[in-house]
């Protein structure tokens, strides 16, 4: 009796494991972190956003169904690199560090870092953040950039306090609670949060010399998948030439 039960359990476990490993040829699985409006966000049970629309277009061109997997941002590239999911589209900035881990499509949008600030704040540039309490989500460009500046850039030895969060929304909440002076965030997300929240504003993050923190988002896939990358690039080319990406951004920015 016990043996039979054990057998049954192992069989069931095996099925689950196999199902998990099964890379279905009819669907592509897209990893993202739905906490980054307007690129990806939850509306009820549904994941929506610019990246979601792009993923659907890619799937359509591939002739496949698409499913989404909502995961932590700081683990996205790692997941893709280890063979989980087919691609990650989640406002991922193309960086040299990340390119050691995954391959990127051509950029589908340019973004620039913004500051989310209290309405009355006088902070206007990167150098003004010296000695301030600055927030950013773990693994986002803003966090990495501020860490960098604190280590060897314009914020070196300035006593700047960098606090890290799971998302920009929680970080912004801490501005309202008086525990933060600024949040560093990607342009569209920063604007979307500032518009939705009384008492917050969003400004472009620039250095004293006027230069901005620019970056480009790409689709991340596991290394060595030239065919897939080629097809993704083709879709991106089509969307850019049709003006679809700007349209998506407007649609999701309310």
């Amino acid at each position: 009796m016990k043996k039979a039960l054990a057998l049954l359990l192992s069989a069931a476990l095996l099925c689950v494991l196999l199902a998990g490993c099964n890379s279905n040829n009819e669907t592509i699985e897209v990893y993202l972190n739905a906490n980054f409006p307007p690129f990806e966000y939850m509306e009820g049970n549904e994941i929506k956003g610019v990246d979601v629309d792009i993923a659907r277009e890619i799937a359509k061109d591939l002739g496949k169904e698409v499913t989404f997997k909502n995961a932590d941002f700081d683990g996205l590239c790692t997941s893709i690199a280890s063979g989980k999911g087919d691609m990650a589209i989640s406002g991922i900035t193309i960086t040299a560090d990340r390119m050691e881990e995954v391959d990127f499509s051509k950029p589908y949008i340019k973004s620039v870092q913004y500051l989310i600030l209290p309405d009355a704040s006088t902070i206007a540039k990167m150098e003004d953040l010296a000695g301030k309490r600055v927030g950013a989500p773990v693994g986002y460009t803003g966090q990495l950039r501020i860490s960098d500046e604190m280590e060897k850039g314009v914020l070196k030895d300035t006593d700047t306090n960098l606090k890290t969060y799971k998302s920009a929304i929680e970080a912004s909440q801490d501005i309202l609670n008086g525990k933060l002076d600024a949040v560093v965030m990607d342009e569209l997300v920063a604007q979307s949060i500032a518009e939705d929240t009384d008492g917050l504003k969003a400004i472009k993050l620039v250095y004293a010399d006027g230069s901005a923190v620019e970056e480009e988002y790409g689709v991340a896939v596991k290394k060595g998948q030239e065919d897939l990358l080629e097809k993704i690039n083709a879709t991106i080319d089509r969307l850019v030439s049709e003006g679809k990406i700007d349209e998506f951004v407007i649609n999701h920015s309310k």
Partner: peptide, 14 residues
């Protein structure tokens, strides 16, 4: 744990 998160985000090596 968070120290590990921060380092992982920077190194991309889990």
């Amino acid at each position: 744990t968070r120290a590990g998160d921060l380092i992982r985000a920077q190194t991309m090596d889990p």
